[in-house]
Nucleic acid binder design. Sequence first.
DNA 1: GCGACAG
DNA 2: ATCTTGTCGC
Length: 231
Amino acid sequence: MTLPHTTPASEAEAVAVQLRLRERVVADSSGPAPGAPGTVVVGVDVAYDDDRDLVAAAAVALDAASLEVVAEATAAGPVAFPYVPGLLAFRELPAVLAALDRLTVAPDLVVCDGYGLAHPRRFGLASHLGVLTDLPTIGVAKNPPPLAVREPPRPLAPGRGATAPLLDAGDEVGRALRTRDGVRPVYVSPGHRTTLDDACAHTLPLTVGVRLPQTTRLADRLCRDTLASGG
DNA sequence: GCGACAG
DNA sequence: ATCTTGTCGC
């Protein structure tokens, strides 16, 4: 990876790391164009067993067009950081980075299960992973971020593809995106080397017939199985 | 002080 | 995240 990851000794130090690293986020579209043929999309996810002090991560690479699995990798280790809202990256990154290292194909885009820009300090898990690896990343979360300035929840049209802005101090930092008709939306935001428009455009083809991106679903299943198999 | 709070 | 059966709908 381009930058090393180190586990902070305190929450205050973790916040300081975020404020420093967020300066390095690249907010352009130097990542793959949505729909570009041959794009390798990698989903990452993590499962925990706090009692055994064990965390397992999985990285699953798909062909963006066919959604066929191209490669998989897992990694397990001790839990490095407690769960603290806003600091999820420090809990998940060590295992995720290890799994990505074991992947035999080069990711064109990494899809994270969590926030990117749509984060209280505008530096969620997806942004953090992108800065450390310099890979294009996006964040797709199941729940809305607790933004400081939340706008009156604008109603979201019922059909797949409908969106509503996630505003933070007047800036659109993410989007609620309906990926299935009549089903609650997911919350998409750019991480590194992607734009919000592209993040949403990348998400739609990954969610044909399902709410969450296939990348996330497959990675979730794999890391869960890995944890169950011992670690 | 209390509630809210990605995974 | 994780603890967990059935149930409604397509």
